[in-house]
Simulated assay, not measured.
Amino acid sequence: MEISINQQRTEIPEHFSVEELLSFLFADSRKGIAIAINQAIIPKREWPVHVLNPEDKITLIKATQGG
């Protein structure tokens, strides 16, 4: 199915959860990540059970260190 991640079209398997998507995108670490789907923030506790739908618009923000 097709979704949009930070305004880029991306193909993912059907029935992917937020947790599965983040594991796919960030294999090493998911620390410091915030995610919104269709402009609604998804709390981390919901990541394993929130299933993505075709045409979802996802905004991913990853915190970085610096100064």
Rank of each mutant, 00 (worst) to 15 (best):
R9N: 08
E55Y: 01
N6L: 08
G66F: 01
P43C: 11
P43S: 12
T10P: 01
E46A: 07
T59Y: 05
G67N: 06
A40Y: 05
I41M: 13
N38I: 10
A34Y: 08
S23K: 10
I42R: 00
L21C: 10
E2D: 08
K57R: 14
Q39N: 11
H50P: 00
I37E: 04
S23L: 08
A27G: 04
R45Y: 00
R45K: 13
I33P: 00
I58A: 05
T59S: 12
S23H: 08
L25C: 10
A27E: 11
M1H: 06
A27V: 00
A36L: 06
Q8H: 13
I37P: 02
V51G: 01
S29E: 11
I3P: 02
A27K: 02
D28F: 05
E46Y: 02
K57Q: 15
L25I: 03
P13S: 11
V49E: 10
I3G: 06
F16I: 13
M1W: 00
W47Q: 12
F26E: 09
N38D: 14
E20S: 08
Q8E: 07
Q65V: 11
I42H: 01
F24G: 04
A27I: 00
F16D: 08
Q7F: 03
L52C: 09
E20L: 04
I33N: 01
K31T: 13
F26T: 02
P48R: 09
D28C: 05
E19V: 02
L60Q: 06
R30P: 00
I61R: 04
K31E: 14
S17N: 12
E20N: 09
I37C: 05
P43K: 15
A63L: 12
D28G: 06
L25W: 02
E19G: 07
L22W: 06
